[in-house]
Amino acid sequence: MNIEQTVKRAMSDVAQLSDCQLIETIEPDTLLLQSGLDSLGYAMLVAQLEEELGIDPFTELAITVYPATFAEFVAVYAQGLEQKRD
């Protein structure tokens, strides 16, 4: 499973856990705030991905501006995983 699929699956798990309804199709340029998860849902997504991937790229890469789109969010995780490998 690539990172994009991992994030999509985690979003769906977290949506279920937090009683949120995800929109049907999440495209690369889908705005995170319009994907159906609320802010607490996003905190849960970051927690879920940290457990699965062993990284919290926002802390580790000291990212101060939260990504706006799904593609940007995935890119942050791809960068985090790359740094972990180095």
């Binding site: 905190a43 927690a47 940290e50 457990e51």
Partner: peptide, 9 residues
């Protein structure tokens, strides 16, 4: 540490 609690609900 809250993050884990969020997942535990």
């Amino acid at each position: 540490l809250l993050r884990s609690m969020l997942l535990n609900r």
